[in-house]
Simulated scan of single mutants.
Amino acid sequence: MSKALLDKAKTLEPLFPNKSTALFGGKSSGILNWNDIAYPHWYKMYKRLVGNYWQADEINMSSDVKQFPSLSKAEQDAYLKIIGLLATLDAPQTRTALLISLYATDASVQSIMAVIAQQEAVHNESYSYVLSSVVSLDEQNKSFQHGRKDPVLLKRNGNLVKQYNQFVEEPTIDNILKTLVYTSLLEGMFFYSGFAFFYNLARNNKMVGTSTMISYINRDELEHGRFIAELFRATLAENPEQNTAELTDWVYTHFKESVELEIEWSKYVLAEVEGIDLEEMAGYIKYRANKMLRMMGLSEIYPENVDNPMKWIRAYVDNFDGTKTDFFEQKSRQYTKTSDLNGFDDL
């Protein structure tokens, strides 16, 4: 596989065509005409992403403020650790999306990644927002330290950190493909044990404001995962010399390692939480891995986990199966905008 370093895309190059000759390493004027792009259906993806616009402080947290002190110690600990995990994952996604766009010579990719980067920034802000609603500043800061200090979380994120930093140091097509693999894992699997925790609280009428926000984030991540998988496939198709048994083996190996680490993390953070079956959660993680592999054009690696073992989650977020359940329609989870910070005027 080629190890040649890519140049950053030129901002404007009028001598080149508007329709890029390649996603990465191609020639493009830098002028974006959505009616003249190499992958026309990506305009629909752009429109879906833009249509998901929301802001964290539009979500009413007043009931969560009242409920958090009544959660069990295990639920409070898991809440804070999982928020710390999500912040650890979403904060670098803003930078990674922008970094990918710097090397993309296709202007439509640059625009889509810009929207994804903005949404990841909103996600990260939302974690500060919900924590500021329910705990002191000292507790907020402790939660955001988990990604730097918790040994289980550090182990879980180790491969991701290594690959993301490798892309920074060596911007090659090979590292772009591998970074897209880990971005796909992040968007489509790494978040999901955490999401399940908040949805489990919601189905017990606890912390509904937080879980509503998580549903917004989850909806965004589904769209991100869809695009990243397509970008991976398209980049591989444009660079057939990269489509090797070595790369395929690398993907399967890192998916398997990631699944094992995610299961280990879920057992660590959810062990004492009532209402979550850890074996069922392990099956759900494998199910999500299978789904992301299919989207990337690869084969499933867990044939016994082709169906979702946690079907109750479908009530809280859209899915890729074509069956859409709109959580906005559920009376117990009504989305209420508030003009004042955290809805404290409703207390």
Score class of each variant (00 low, 15 high):
2 S>D: 12
11 T>I: 09
17 P>T: 10
18 N>W: 04
23 L>S: 14
24 F>I: 02
25 G>Y: 01
28 S>F: 07
29 S>L: 05
32 L>Q: 12
37 I>K: 10
44 K>H: 11
47 K>Y: 08
47 K>A: 10
49 L>G: 08
51 G>L: 11
52 N>M: 12
55 Q>E: 12
55 Q>W: 11
56 A>E: 14
56 A>G: 06
57 D>P: 15
62 S>Q: 07
69 P>K: 07
69 P>C: 10
70 S>H: 15
71 L>S: 08
71 L>I: 05
71 L>Y: 03
72 S>V: 13
73 K>T: 10
75 E>G: 07
77 D>E: 10
78 A>E: 15
81 K>A: 08
82 I>L: 11
90 D>Y: 01
93 Q>H: 14
98 L>E: 04
98 L>P: 00
99 L>I: 05
99 L>P: 00
105 T>Q: 09
107 A>F: 03
111 S>P: 02
122 V>C: 05
128 S>L: 13
129 Y>H: 11
132 S>P: 01
134 V>L: 11
135 V>M: 15
135 V>H: 14
143 S>H: 03
148 R>H: 04
150 D>M: 08
160 L>N: 05
161 V>W: 01
162 K>I: 10
163 Q>F: 00
164 Y>W: 10
168 V>C: 13
175 N>V: 08
190 F>H: 15
194 G>S: 13
195 F>L: 10
199 Y>G: 07
200 N>D: 15
206 K>F: 05
207 M>F: 04
207 M>I: 06
210 T>F: 07
212 T>W: 04
215 S>N: 03
222 L>K: 03
225 G>Q: 11
226 R>S: 07
228 I>G: 00
228 I>T: 10
234 A>C: 04
235 T>P: 00
239 N>I: 00
239 N>D: 06
242 Q>S: 08
243 N>S: 06
244 T>H: 03
244 T>K: 01
247 L>Y: 09
248 T>R: 12
250 W>Q: 05
256 K>A: 06
258 S>Q: 15
264 E>F: 02
265 W>T: 04
268 Y>G: 08
274 E>G: 13
276 I>V: 12
276 I>S: 13
277 D>L: 05
279 E>P: 02
280 E>L: 07
282 A>C: 01
283 G>R: 14
286 K>Y: 03
300 E>G: 02
303 P>I: 09
304 E>V: 02
304 E>G: 04
309 P>H: 12
317 V>A: 10
318 D>C: 04
322 G>S: 12
324 K>C: 14
325 T>W: 06
332 S>L: 07
